[in-house]
């Protein structure tokens, strides 16, 4: 568990600049909220990319981020509805959102190839951090089997996104 906590703290630190996350205290409704929030953050980043980028590879990547994360979050909403629970806002979700706002503002100040590179680099790092958090903390911590299964499917999809982002980064360098 210590290793998991350290891994999660490292991922969160990388993403959000905070290490003081009490991951062991998370319950399923909070985990669902964190996963949903992480998806919405990536959709917002992709929408910014679609506003600003004219690079075809970057745009195709961003379009797929909107499509995939929307699809996963639809599944998440369907699951919480089925389970009759309400995702619970929490400190981790709030920190995620605040840090994402800062990152988005930073990206919004860039343009052209500089924007493309910064956006895709952030996508690589963001998915890596989210995947680490999913694998090492959120999936093991989830107690509901359907939630655990959906998070595992998410991990599979987002592992692909990380590779896709790495491929796009190679293409635009």
């Amino acid at each position: 568990m210590l290793a998991r906590l350290i891994g999660f703290a490292a991922a969160i630190t990388m993403l959000f600049g905070v290490a003081n996350v009490y991951a062991a205290d998370l319950n399923d409704t909070q985990i669902a909220h964190i996963a949903y929030t992480a998806g919405q953050i990536d959709i917002a980043a992709a929408e910014l990319a679609l506003e600003k980028s004219s690079n075809e590879d970057v745009r195709r990547f961003a379009e797929n981020m909107v499509s995939d994360h929307t699809a996963v979050n639809e599944q998440a909403l369907a699951l919480v509805e089925k389970l009759g629970v309400t995702p619970e806002d929490n400190e981790t979700s709030q920190t995620l959102s605040k840090q994402a706002d800062l990152k988005r503002a930073e990206l919004a100040g860039l343009s052209g190839p500089a924007f493309d590179r910064a956006y895709v680099e952030n996508e690589v790092a963001y998915h890596q951090a989210v995947n680490d958090a999913l694998a090492n903390l959120l999936i093991p911590a989830a107690s509901n089997e359907e939630l655990k299964a959906l998070l595992s499917t998410g991990l599979e999809i987002f592992t692909g996104h990380q590779q896709h982002a790495e491929n796009v980064l190679e293409m635009i360098q």
Partner: peptide, 8 residues
């Protein structure tokens, strides 16, 4: 491979 999920 799948462009969107290259592990496939």
């Amino acid at each position: 491979f799948c462009r969107f999920h290259p592990q496939m």
